[in-house]
């Protein structure tokens, strides 16, 4: 019982963290088709900016200002970098973001050095907020959950219920038509990219404090954000949300179970040696790799993803 409750809670937390990281990418990837390899770099930028500003103006203003700055940076990148490259196709765009990721990491090192920086949450948030079977949960984790849920809610409303959101969706499938209707399509794309980056920045402000703020943080985040977006399905914010939670739960429960592959095989009646090289591998050991397995399986058997509107 205890294990189940903990795993549910921890899985939810981790899933929401994943959603924060990948919601911006969902927006960019599914709306513009850009495989933004620098997405995690904008996340890192958010963390570092919040750390730098937090020292001057405090955490709360930084929580708002840092994402805005990252968003502006993202919009500038789109306007002066991606837009000229777009005509050369997706591979060119992808490589542009590839190079950008290198660049941002080096710039971060130039400004803040190669060691981790002491970026922490304010004292108010590091207080424990509730206790469950002796395990305390600090307010920060709950705060993160709330922010992630708010992000989801606001984005969803923005896309489905506002004029601007409808225009964005229309511009994706029929850019020329939207252009003929008198809307500024390039501006829409720039805004989408900027907002996507700002969301990554916001995730950085929060994630950087919970995790470790160091120059390798973008690199270590790796391609997990792509997994969320693809598993969730192109163009589906809800899909990304569900995929995040699914991956969070999957990973957390795999750790909690701790059975080995051999145990599982014997459970279904295949007698194998319990501690062979292959059969001795435990679920906990491969837990962080499960999302990638999920990615491959989903793409082979259901390329639309969980809730995607279309194949890519």
């Amino acid at each position: 019982m205890e294990v189940v409750v903990f795993s549910l809670l921890n899985g939810l937390l981790y899933g929401l963290l994943l959603f924060m990281l990948s919601s911006g990418l969902t927006l960019i990837f599914s709306m513009m088709g850009v495989l933004n390899f620098a997405h995690a770099s904008f996340y890192m930028l958010g963390a570092y900016l919040a750390y730098a500003m937090g020292g001057q103006i405090g955490f709360w203003p930084a929580l708002f200002l840092a994402p805005v700055l990252v968003g502006v940076a993202g919009a500038l990148v789109e306007r002066y970098g991606l837009r000229p490259v777009h005509a050369n196709g997706h591979v060119a765009e992808l490589l542009f973001t590839f190079g950008l990721a290198y660049l941002i990491e080096e710039i971060v090192k130039l400004f803040w050095g190669k060691q981790p920086v002491p970026y922490r949450v304010p004292d108010v948030l590091s207080q424990p907020i509730f206790t469950l079977f002796e395990t305390t949960y600090p307010a920060f984790r709950v705060f993160m959950m709330v922010v992630a849920l708010l992000m989801f809610g606001v984005l969803w409303l923005l896309l489905k219920r506002t004029r601007a959101g409808l225009m964005i969706q229309a511009a994706l499938t029929h850019p020329h038509m939207v252009g003929h209707l008198g809307h500024n399509v390039p501006l829409i794309f720039m805004t989408v990219f900027g907002i996507g980056c700002a969301l990554a920045g916001l995730a950085g402000v929060i994630g950087g404090a919970i995790l470790v703020t160091e120059p390798g943080m973008a690199h270590s985040l790796g391609p997990i954000v792509f997994v969320v977006v693809v598993v969730g399905g192109m163009g589906s914010l809800t899909g990304a949300f569900v995929a995040s939670l699914l991956i969070g739960m999957l990973q957390t429960f795999a750790i909690a179970v701790g059975a080995s592959i051999g145990d599982l095989l014997r459970l279904v009646g295949i007698p194998v040696a319990p501690h062979g090289e292959l059969t001795g591998i435990t679920l906990a050991q491969i837990a962080p790799m499960l999302p990638f397995l999920l990615l491959v399986l989903i793409l082979i058997f259901r390329p639309r993803g969980l809730m995607g509107a279309r194949e890519t």
Binding site: L13, T135, Q285
Partner: peptide, 21 residues
Amino acid sequence: DELHPLGKVKDFSPYVAKMRA
């Protein structure tokens, strides 16, 4: 006695929960 992939785990809370249990 637990092994986890190098540099892939973002949240160690599940492991801590196991340790406490």
